[in-house]
Design a protein around this nucleic acid. Structure first.
Lengths: 186, 186
DNA sequence: ACGAAAGTTGAGCGTACACTCAACTTCGGG
DNA sequence: CCCGAAGTTGAGTGTACGCTCAACTTTCGT
């Protein structure tokens, strides 16, 4: 299915509508009626292109989770500062997608299906941060690097959540402070 | 209403059932049918004691938000380490309530009614951390103390979220590291 | 320009939800 | 022990949801 050009365009419009609704009002706001209305499409068309409502939501979610990592296909040779900067840019630059991402992390606390996706994406990112830490400081053992990466990533996540909740929170500044304190040897 | 002893007990049972369901499956799992069944009560009794489903949920939520702060009535003279320890104990000791709290923070990203409650509670806690920071290091100005408190609190929040998502994350250890790095002068 | 595959449509289905209500039972002060 | 207030009950109401389907139109390789 979905091999004609029109079909692909409809699919894209539906996904865009789903993403917008998700960002604006969370999972609760994503209803078939709203999605299809926003996409300018009949309900039947939705089910011609997606297995279920959940399928469309998950596709958007997958995009949101991947969006945190810049150039996921490129060779892993980013510096730690680049990864942190990318995370900050993700939160402050596209709060719409960031909101989806963090809300999912929250929902993952009670929904195992969501939890496993969030955890997998988290682990992948953690590995990448750990590699960057070792590149930064080659004397670090694998475990020590992983610990440091965990600290940085968990703090960043907290910074992101805080900055989306509290408008007075300056995420970029706090992220800089995080890097400074990571640079200082313990 | 609710002046006889029985009424108060029923109320307590309903709130307990709501709290359990919230912790187990999030907001989505809280339905009138489940709550009343778990409380061993008819639907009508629920509406004799609560304005709406939302009212009961909010009452539980209020409890969850308050639970993060130890002795909120006591004079504010805790040390920073105590506050951090209390936060860690909250997350690791009662993950049930902690899950509600962090999920709410996530939901607050799209629901203004929830957001304002979460933000108010966050601000109150922030103030308390800032006071403790000044007590720790009296040379700190009010703004500097607030900055430091924000860093610590945001990191702690991230640690909490991470530890509830990733079972391998050792929150207590990372919180200790956080205090150490805060102790070192910048 | 034909026709089969792809795409579109919305009325309607079953279900689950939050909430109401009128009849009933229990409580406890006087 | 009486009686009004407090508390209980669950069948029933309206609504919104996700999803189906059969009739229809568009696309595009041949």
């Amino acid at each position: 299915m979905a091999r004609y050009r029109v079909g692909l365009e409809t699919r894209a419009r539906i996904l865009a509508a789903t993403r917008d609704l998700l960002a604006e009002g969370g999972l609760e706001a994503v209803t078939l009626k709203r999605v299809t209305a926003a996409a300018g499409v009949g309900v039947g068309s939705f089910y011609n292109l997606f297995e279920s409502k959940e399928a469309a939501v998950f596709e958007v979610v997958r995009g949101a989770l991947d969006a945190v990592d810049p150039h996921p296909d490129a060779a892993h040779d980013d510096r730690l500062a680049d990864l942190v900067e990318a995370f900050v840019a993700f939160i402050t630059g596209s709060p719409t997608v960031a909101r989806i991402y963090l809300q999912l992390a929250g929902l993952g606390l009670t929904d195992p299906a969501i939890a496993s996706r969030v955890l997998r994406s988290h682990r992948r990112r953690l590995e990448r941060f750990a590699e960057a830490c070792r590149r930064e400081d080659p004397t670090l053992g694998p475990d020590a690097a992983r610990e440091r990466a965990q600290t940085i990533l968990a703090s960043l996540t907290g910074f992101g959540l805080t900055s989306l909740i509290d408008p007075t929170f300056d995420m970029a500044a706090h992220a800089r402070g995080l890097l400074d304190s990571a640079a200082r040897p313990v």
